[in-house]
Amino acid sequence: MTGTQADIRHPRPSQLPASGAVRAESAKPPPFNAFRRFVRGFLARPSGVAGVAILFAFAVLALVAPAFIGPAQLDVTKVSGPLLAPPSAHYLLGTDESGRSVLALAIWGARASLSVGVIATALTVILGSTIGLLAGHYQGWLGAVLMHVTDWFIALPSLPLAISLSAVLGQGSASITIAIAVTSWTSTARLVRAQTLAVEARPFVERARALGASNSQIVVRQVLPNVMPLILVSSTLTVASAILSEATLTFLGLGDPTSVSWGSMLDSAFSRGAVTAEAWWYLLTPGVAILIVVLGFTLTGRAVEHVLNPRMVK
């Protein structure tokens, strides 16, 4: 058994049929070259570079925010600004209904919005890929059951389901994260299952099976590396929709009432009369922030998709 394992890990081309050798090599090219080729292809797409630049800027801003924003700017009892004041030299993007700087709130809100988006995506991807891989590999009763569960979830409208889930789980970012993951894993699962079926039909998987590889070896060593690029692409696009869902659920009042996020800013802008007060700076800022970040993730995801799968370029 040890011999077989070693063979799977280091396929010796001389022992393989010609097609198998080519497949095995193209499946695992030297990592550095592949990475360089990927970077070169990605840099050739300006929209993708712009997307990455946006995301990088927002990530840096969110990470260094604690250095210059503290309770003095965020605590409603400690701030002393004018209420709902339009942009001025001192408050570049105006103030909210309790006199806090909208700019400081928007920068601080990036932390909550981005972290919920990223964590929800991580959960989505783990759940979706595991179910997709299992459903694609075990095509007997297990695959059938998993696909039926997936279809059942697809039939449920996602926002009402997320609302009901967070209503049951309680208010807070943890329940929003779970609600987003539970409502969005299905598309990842379908995608991964389809790709798993395609990969398993290729000769190198049959060869591994013939050499006595176990189910887990086939899934982890043969299928997963070939499905991974697709998972990465879909996860970039999932973050975009997760951030939108986070904003929507928080706007509906399901978020953590003590923390500041872009969704909670819009919620208080809406419920504290920013609309009738024509406080456009208060409405515009968080929304534009969401728009830019979602666009950043979408552009990045599409560029990665095109580089990894040139056939999709249309």
Binding site: A240, A247, E278, L283, I290, V294, L295, T298
Partner: peptide
């Protein structure tokens, strides 16, 4: 693509204002 990236309720509030 830009319109798709907007939260629906936010666009609603902007149009409302």
């Amino acid at each position: 693509l830009t319109l798709w990236s907007m939260p629906t309720f936010w666009l609603g509030m902007i149009l409302l204002v």
